[in-house]
């Protein structure tokens, strides 16, 4: 997959491919670590909050996750199992998202090299810009595939007909049903929605960074 970072763009002799690959590899590992930590922590915290705030006798909707995360439940033991699952999901998501996002790095380097004026002092304290398009493709693909996998897991288990909670997604994703075809329709819609949210995220982030840079200089 590393070679895709370079293959997607016209080769430039000035750029050391090995250096790019090593950088992408390192960042993938670090991003996976960060997301694993945060997802794990979030699962632990949400389960504990749910455990203590859900009135006795009422069903916590987090229990629905048990269908996809074996061993998980809204309980003290389940919170720790959930933390492990969160860490695994976070790590896998981190790898997938960064690897797809990294395909834009070669172009970013080329753009930077072609820019006429670059202040050398910027090299020491550069702030990352987020590219909405590759981020949208990465996150969009991840959530779309997740929806297809989750829905078809219910279909394979034979509980599609009883999956009222999953079917509620049709309120947000018209045409979605707990079936193979429905999952594809839902996945396509979810991809578009996620892509748009990523554009909003990157647009806001880059604007704030620009504003802060303007204030400093």
């Amino acid at each position: 997959m590393n070679s895709r970072v370079v293959q997607d763009h016209k080769k430039d002799d000035r750029i050391d491919d090995d250096l790019i690959h090593a950088t992408v590899k390192l960042n993938t590992l670090l991003f996976a670590l960060v997301l694993a930590f945060l997802f794990g922590l979030a699962m632990l915290a949400l389960t504990y909050i749910s455990l203590y705030r859900t009135p006795e006798g009422q069903y916590s909707f987090l229990n629905l996750l048990a269908v996809f995360l074996p061993g998980y439940s809204v309980s003290v033991q389940g919170a720790w199992i959930g933390m492990l699952w969160g860490a695994v999901i976070g790590a896998v998501s981190g790898v997938v998202v960064y690897r797809i996002y990294a395909r834009s790095i070669y172009k970013q380097v080329l753009d930077f090299l072609e820019s006429p004026e670059v202040d050398e002092s910027e090299f020491d304290r550069v702030t990352m810009k987020i590219s909405g398009h590759p981020l949208g493709l990465a996150l969009g693909s991840l959530v779309a595939v997740s929806l297809v996998v989750a829905t078809n897991l219910l279909v394979i288990r034979g509980t599609a007909g009883d999956s009222h909670n999953a079917a509620l997604l049709s309120n947000y994703l018209p045409g979605y049903t707990v079936s193979f075809t429905g999952s594809l329709i839902g996945a396509a819609e979810l991809f578009v929605v996620t892509y748009l949210f990523c554009l909003i995220l990157s647009g806001t982030y880059n604007k704030v960074v620009e504003l802060m840079k303007g204030k400093r200089s």
Partner: peptide, 27 residues
């Protein structure tokens, strides 16, 4: 050598804490 610098610069660029907080809050 500039290209190597740029690769390292982009690879080790820091994320803006304020920018990330605000943008994720908005989303």
């Amino acid at each position: 050598e500039d290209a190597d610098k740029v690769v390292l610069m982009l690879g080790f660029a820091r994320l803006s804490v304020v920018g990330m907080s605000i943008s994720i809050a908005v989303v």
